[in-house]
Each structure stands twice: as structure tokens, then as C-alpha cells.
Design a protein around this nucleic acid. Sequence first.
DNA 1: GATGATGTATAGCCTATGCTATATTTAAAT
DNA 2: ATTTAAATATAGCATAGGCTATACATCATC
Lengths: 136, 136
Amino acid sequence: MTDVDQADRFARAREAQSVALIEDYVEMIGDLIAELGEARVADIAERMGVAQPTATKAVSRLKREGFATSRPYRGVFLTEEGAALAERVRARHRTVVALLRAVGVPEEVAELDAEGIEHHVSEQTLKAFERFLQGK
Amino acid sequence: MTDVDQADRFARAREAQSVALIEDYVEMIGDLIAELGEARVADIAERMGVAQPTATKAVSRLKREGFATSRPYRGVFLTEEGAALAERVRARHRTVVALLRAVGVPEEVAELDAEGIEHHVSEQTLKAFERFLQGK
DNA sequence: GATGATGTATAGCCTATGCTATATTTAAAT
DNA sequence: ATTTAAATATAGCATAGGCTATACATCATC
Ligand SMILES: [Mn+2]
Ligand SMILES: [Mn+2]
Ligand SMILES: [Mn+2]
Ligand SMILES: [Mn+2]
């Protein structure tokens, strides 16, 4: 393998990382809206396990990147794009957990590890996981 | 699932991320030493796909955390702890690639995704992967 | 051994993601 | 309607990880 190839891999992993937080926030805001009818910054912060100003800042980024909207002192909403991303991320999360379970990982551990793994599973790998799960 | 549980998961994923760069650097420095007899900052930078000062800064962190040693204008060396980490990381990387291949992921894609996934695979999941691979 | 090329370190900058402390707004209670 | 409590925003700080430009050291070459 050439140095450039490997450098590309690392660059890809770095990029995935930068997207990971967005994905987790968007998915989780979707959960809150589904469960409680709205997503308040305080709830977002509590579920993410971060301080409230950290959540506020994250929401700013989601807005800047077009995944969410909000007005001062009001709840947070997902744009169409945000809702679509949340759906994709949620489905992928489920598939990753199912794959881990299928190869013998205990449920608790599968859920734990999936939270990180999911962000590095490409479309191709996801498809392979789905085929594998069906063929069982 | 309680909010605290989920918050813990996210916290764990964040922690894994913070360790990920260290793991990649240490593994790669080990590769360089094995291949070239030494690891120079310039080579580290090239393989990581980052600028040279970025690699220098990373090496500083490795030293600070006890995984590497170096003297100004000389190569970088792994401590015992660093070499042990490199070995663990390399083995885990291989296992993750093997598991992906075993469930039908093409080799190229497996290598690409593994570079990110590996850092979120717990000991328990790794053991499950190994059992699954043996039982085939 | 002087010189030029190469490698490394340092300075200074940026963005992302955390935090605490505090101001401000909204909502609830009296 | 006030007052109080709760939620949110903002200010200011820290660390990690990027970058470019530049100073400095080492190594070859002549
Ligand atoms: Mn996640
Ligand atoms: Mn998830
Ligand atoms: Mn990696
Ligand atoms: Mn690796």
C-alpha cells in the first residue's frame, strides 16, 4: 500500500469523525421530537451528557449546516434534510446493532459499541451487513 | 433506556475518539520502524496525510502520554508501553478487517472502514469477532 | 570545511468541542 | 401584576488538532 492510499484512509476516518457528532445530535433530536413532541436544548444537553451551552453551540452548527431550525428561547426542529438524515442514521444504527448481535456480541455491548462504529460504516458495508442478516 | 445511559454511551464514543488518533499514530510509527528501521517526523506526516508540524505536535502528545520518546532533530521511538499498544492495535485492526470480509464486505472497503471502526470495538466485541471467525 | 538541500522545530493562526459563570428571557406561582 | 423559578443565550476560557510561514539544525556534496 502506498503512503498516499493510507493517508487517504486516515483522512476519510477524520472526515467521518467530524460528521459523527452531527449525526448523533440529529438522530437524538428526532427521538426527542417523537417522544416528547419537541426538543428543548436542556433535554438535548442531558441526553448527550454535555453542558447546556455545549448543546446550544451544537444546535448552532446544525442550523448553520441546514439540518435544524430554531428561534431564541424556543425548541429545536429538524429541517427536511435533518429529518432525512435522522432516518438514515437511525436505520444504520439498527443494522449495525443487528450485525453485531448476529456474530455473537451481547446486546448491551452491541449497543455501546454501535454508537461509535456506526459512523464509520460505509454504504457498501451497510449493504453487505443487510445481505448477511437476510441470508441467515 | 434512561438519559444517563445514553449519555454514558455518547461519552464513551467521545473518549474512544480521543484515543483513536493516538492509536493510529502509534501503530503507524511501529510500521515505519519495522519497515525502515526508524520513524522520522517527515515520514509520519506523509503517511498520516498531515503537515509536518501537525505530526510534530502529535509526537509531543505521544511523548507526554508515555507512548514514545524522541530527541530534537532525531527519529521517534516507541516506549515499551507504546510498542505494546501498537501490537494490540495492529491485531485488532486485522480482526476487524477479517470480520468484515467474513460477512461479505469487499476487501478494499473493509480496509477503508476498518480504519475508523477499529477504535470503537471493545474487548468483548473483539472476542466475539474472534469466536465467530473461528467457528466458520 | 563551507555551502546548499533537507529535515525539524517554533510561532502564530483557525475551527471544533468542551467547560463555568452570568445575563437574559420565558414561564409559573402567589 | 409581581415575584420567583427555570430555561436559554452569551461571554470567556481551555484543549485538541489542523494549517502556513519561517527559523534552526543536520547532513551531503564539493
Ligand atoms: Mn453514534
Ligand atoms: Mn446512534
Ligand atoms: Mn484507525
Ligand atoms: Mn488501523
